[in-house]
Nucleic acid binder design. Structure first.
Lengths: 342, 342
DNA sequence: TTTATATGATTAAACGTTTAATCAAGGAGT
DNA sequence: ACTCCTTGATTAAACGTTTAATCATATAAA
């Protein structure tokens, strides 16, 4: 219920609070020196009483909390799960704690969480922004006010925030280059909201690969949808029912969940993957390699994203100059059965 | 870099800090009243200046932080991932923030993290203890000192902590009852460390189901191992190489990762699941339903665990009486192809 | 003997809040 | 004209730290 304070210790050893503080923080040479005898006595008593410094009180005077706020849409998504894990690991070895908050892809809770994170006077903030541009002014404000802020996984084009993202244009380009090389010319792409950088970039890679191969871009094969399994399932189903599936050599999902939905719909319709049609996803979810037909996809290097985010954040916190404000890490292709008959 | 304080606002509106504090905390009737005009002026200025209260300073006087510490072995494990998600959701709607820390199944970092969590004066702590009994005295100390503490997923028999766990005896019992009902009498069990409550309970369910069916318990079929895929793979492989696999109708893993390793080894050896041999796991990982041969397993209700943990913790924090100190939630069987030929 | 320095400490202010106690002035009741 | 309440505020203490400035004593140097 009530914690031991420096004063409790001071009283027991008949020394002043300042002396106790000096000893427990151990950094001698502050102009103040402590005798060996009292030093040991203080350490002993502090151990006996289970003294635990109050970091909140400390923050008031030192201005630091050694806490980093992490705000993500949803930790159940594999990528954020991994990033959180690695970031947490990094931070904890550097003596920082992690304050975790969710935005659920919604700018309203996002704003609310940011506010409370700031009220805790964290030393830095990492946020994977929810879709939508509503909070750009907020990000600007806190970034301008000098709070170290690093955007992760998603960024806002035209704005100059620190950010670490995966190079989805490159990843997507390589994916579709591979699919084209398997002989597929007509590729349906079941995408998410084209306003988000995620979808935009993956679509850009698609476009590039097609262009390079001299395949004309067909707008009717790019289908706008959501990001979940059921979205993929439904769009694939209408594709099948409308007969348009006959014109396709491959169907790609904007991510692995969508691709899983696509696979379901195809299987249901009696189509064989990869014999009748190729399928691919994006993100390399945990299940993707273990599916009945293992899924070709693109791996986003979560641990590298975490590492780079950590380093960038530390650079900003420590006030070091940063070479690149926008770091992009590249993705790697995972070729599996769903696009590879051999 | 530097935040706005109550004093900054007070200066601008020519009122005292106390008045500003009153207005911004909004709870009139503290014996102090504020005129409508000044109230509005204060609110306006506070908005203009982007005032964000310093929660650390507040803690000093109110004694509350509205932060809950969560300490888990590893958020990459599906179960902890889900629990964290749901707990975070619950807490945030109740106005609490989440401080997340990892023990990596190691009592040493576990202790260190507990200490810093306490130094942040959290309002409560949830911990899924790492294997080992080293930190029981620490848990006792903090629990005795009045800090609300709830153990999750794992508990210490003989100790009287608040805890929320899954009923793995029941889950395991039902699993093996099902396997026996499929005609399997000789069941190998590749288990983890029998000192941990997890393994102990699942083994107990195994024992119970066998006993009920009148099948003698064979110690040589219970194989001690670790908790990872490679552990299952290796143990299954030695089982195969020693020829003992011939005597088995089924092989079970202590969790799904181990079961996945078992499946790999069996496939490699040309054995068919479920035709030649049955396989089961525990935990219902995300991949388990999507495997080439979907895996029979037991689902641990993470969201229910999170909910119960949340309620129990709040009861303890609010000082309400608690009916049951040890809450157990039951698991449900997921029967899939790996034990079910039909 | 006097002065300077080293040693081991103390004092006091500051950080940003909350909150109990107090105060001043105006109006109502007598 | 006096007291009493109401309204709208202020003062001051407290919370647990850190840290700059200062102090007292003993010892070494001159």
């Amino acid at each position: 219920m009530s914690y031991v304070t420096l004063e409790d210790i001071a009283r027991q050893v008949h020394k002043s609070v300042a002396t106790v503080s000096q000893v427990l923080n151990g950094k001698d040479g502050n102009g103040i020196r402590v005798g060996k005898e009292t030093r040991e006595k203080i350490l002993k008593v502090s151990r006996e009483l289970n003294y635990r410094p109050n970091y909140n009180a400390r923050q008031l005077v030192t201005k630091g909390t050694k806490v980093i706020g992490l705000l993500i849409p949803d930790i159940m998504q594999m990528f954020f799960n991994e990033v959180t894990y690695h970031l947490s690991r990094r931070l904890s070895t550097a003596g920082y704690d992690l304050l975790l908050a969710h935005s659920y892809e919604d700018p309203v809770p996002e704003k609310r969480e940011i506010e409370t994170i700031l009220s805790r006077r964290v030393d830095g903030i990492v946020v994977a922004p929810a879709c939508g541009k509503e909070n750009i002014p907020l990000f600007k404000e806190i970034s301008d006010s000098g709070v170290p802020l690093v955007l992760m996984d998603r960024y806002f084009s035209g704005e100059s925030f620190y950010s670490v993202t995966t190079d989805d244009v490159q990843g997507s380009y390589e994916l579709f280059k591979h699919i084209v090389s398997r002989g597929a010319g007509r590729i349906a792409f079941i995408s998410g909201n084209p306003d988000t950088s995620v979808t935009m970039e993956r679509l850009e890679g698609y476009r590039l690969a097609l262009e390079e191969a001299g395949i004309p871009y067909r707008g009717d094969l790019v289908i706008k949808s959501g990001y979940f399994q059921k979205d993929g399932y439904e769009r694939a189903k209408t594709l099948i029912q409308s007969g348009k599936i006959q014109e396709c050599d491959a169907v790609s999902g904007v991510n692995d969940s969508v691709a899983l939905g696509i696979l379901e719909a195809l299987w249901e319709a009696g189509l064989k993957v990869p014999e009748d049609i190729l399928v691919s996803g994006y993100g390399d979810e945990r299940f993707s390699g273990y599916l009945g037909c293992p899924l070709t996809t693109v791996r986003q290097p979560a641990s590298e994203v975490a590492d780079r985010t950590y380093s960038l954040l530390m650079d900003v916190i420590k006030g070091r100059d940063v070479l690149t404000k926008d770091i992009k890490v590249s993705c790697s292709l995972r070729i599996r059965e769903s696009t590879d008959g051999s």
